[in-house]
Design a protein around this nucleic acid. Structure first.
Lengths: 342, 342
DNA sequence: ATGAAAGCGCTAACAG
DNA sequence: CTGTTAGCGCTTTCAT
């Protein structure tokens, strides 16, 4: 409650008006004489004055706060994305409000409304399901916003180039000489899993290694890990000739890794595995996962910059390339921290 | 900029005053006649009025926002803790502002100041290093706050019972009949790693299995994983008689798992491993890690409740028990999702 | 270059 | 039970 000194106290101590103090504090919009400015700054220092951002926000209609809603803050991918966005926001002097939607559409809606009530300057959303109604909500709130890690024709989206990521993963496996390759993924509509699957599949077809239907394993959302586990167990049992697996997310890969291990196949040795995402989890696993890695920091920075400059250019999808990080799981003899050794 | 309808618009439409509208909206502090209340609510609905929390906050000196600073939002433990705290805050109608300190004291200080500038109602901190100066900052700001996952005599702390967690881990290993047990941990001062190490060590000593000095592996912070990897590699090479490892965090365990695997020891088979933390990462690994699991949701809920009711009782440490989750890495033949099978 | 003053939208005395 | 009104602390127009 001891709200500390106000701009009036500073003005009084500096022997000037609140207007001038404000000009000094904000470097404008009007000029201030050097001598006055010095007195103001001295007063600020002596009083330990800190501006009340609430009042500022009310007046300026701008809070300096951004908002982010993800399906689950604790999942490695979203956690890393959150860190990246927070870093970018912090670097620009902004704060970040976060919320988990628990993969639930209603909860996502509530979280979004909470952000709007908090009067965030802009909002980011990694939608849990079909983003249509969320986009409508955001549009009606007339607040700058962007979809992250997911695209939709009606708004601005910051995403990875997932089709290319799928291609890279498949290509790497092809370079290893694999002929029997399975694909873990095939999600809904235009989500990353689906795009990556499409890219991988296209590449395999182009190299005369079309995926037989039985080797395209569909894993419902959001129990990716366990679904991938079961699907892989099944596949390896019925089709032992498989020598390589392309996982469309690290979670899929985790499930595949467990299934393969239980069945006695050694990943990186007699079974190759390449993943897509490249969260730190991929580096943690044993063997470390070769993965097409998402550019988290770039995504975060671009997301923040994009909502900060509402170019008004209408819906767009800003795509950022993912890059291959070679570790052990593909069979390359790389060191465990990702540097290729042979 | 289209700030939407204000309380005045609602008052006008309902044919009453702003005061009454406010009373209706806040259920007090004064009573309102049912008929009037109904008219107000109708007006609110018709106008799609949403209260401006900025103005409310400025007036009430209460933002409805909590703040959290952790060393790294993307690390599994902190990510899960963040989710838990956000869930608890959301359940109580509050928002959460987050910040990463990057394990840096100065950055932590900046993040804390950012929270204060945002006028959060209360703040949580998982300190990156010695929390003394951060505590001073928080105290001077006269804002309710709590340390989480770390204790300090000068303030209120929400933590796990880490000594007991260490004991539980060691006991489980002893029950398996292991005689040569190594300990991965031994952090600084009173941090969780150090407390867990102390607990484990005490239990081993009490059971006449004191840890020889060479089997207590110190892993500097925050490169736990790689340090644990190197330390374990070293230990297993020089002391192959070791049959069990007690890791004080999941990150230590990840490093140990990799080292053991590279050296040809099979975790859960000819080398037992028990970890402490129990993040989802533990369940993801192959083999799944038996771990003494932190009660994230309880910690989050208690943290929020504690700062919301500043009991004024002065510094305390509120301790919550961790519980053993048996999976594969200890040698128990549990199913992969943690249910004990034999 | 500076000061006075009008609000931003809301809450809560204070008066009926 | 309800209306009037004074601010919360700040920014910014309008004077000077």
């Amino acid at each position: 409650m001891a709200t500390g000194p106000t701009i009036r106290d500073v003005a009084a101590r500096a022997g000037t008006s609140t207007a001038v103090v404000s000009y000094v504090l904000n470097d404008g919009p009007r000029p201030v004489a050097p001598a006055t400015r010095a007195r103001v700054l001295a007063a600020v220092a002596e009083l330990g004055y800190r501006r009340n951002n609430l009042a500022r926000a009310l007046r300026a209609n701008r809070t300096g706060t951004l908002g982010l809603v993800v399906p689950d803050l604790a999942k490695p991918f979203f956690a890393e994305l959150t860190r990246a966005i927070e870093d970018a926001a912090f670097a620009r002097g902004l704060r970040l409000l976060v919320g988990s939607a628990h993969f639930d559409a209603d909860r996502e809606d509530e979280q979004l409304r909470a952000l709007l009530d908090a009067r965030v300057d802009a909002a980011f959303l990694v939608p849990s399901q079909d983003p249509t109604s969320s986009i409508t909500l955001l549009r009606r709130a007339r607040i700058p916003h962007a979809l992250v890690h997911r695209t939709h024709p009606d708004t601005v989206c910051i995403a990875g180039d997932d089709v290319s990521a799928g291609r890279q993963a498949a290509e790497h496996l092809l370079q290893h000489g694999h002929r029997y390759i399975a694909l873990l993924g095939v999600g809904r509509a235009e989500d990353p899993v689906s795009l990556r699957s499409r890219g991988a599949s296209a590449t395999l077809t182009e190299h005369d290694r079309p995926l037989p239907p039985w080797s395209m394993l569909t894993c419902p959302f959001p129990n990716l890990r366990d679904d991938a586990y079961r699907a892989t167990l099944d596949l390896l049992t019925t089709h032992p000739q498989i020598t390589a697996i392309c996982a469309t997310t690290d979670e899929h890969a985790v499930g595949a890794l467990r299934a393969a291990t239980e069945i006695g196949r050694r990943i990186g040795d007699d079974l190759a595995l390449v993943s897509i995402d490249g969260t730190e989890l991929a580096a943690y696993l044993t063997p470390a996962l070769t993965a097409v890695t998402a550019p988290f920091d770039t995504l975060g920075a671009d997301a923040v910059d994009t909502v900060l400059n509402p170019s008004g250019a209408g819906p767009t999808v800003r795509q950022h390339p993912l890059t291959l990080t070679v570790r052990r799981s593909c069979g390359c003899h790389a060191t465990h921290d990702g540097h290729r050794k042979s």
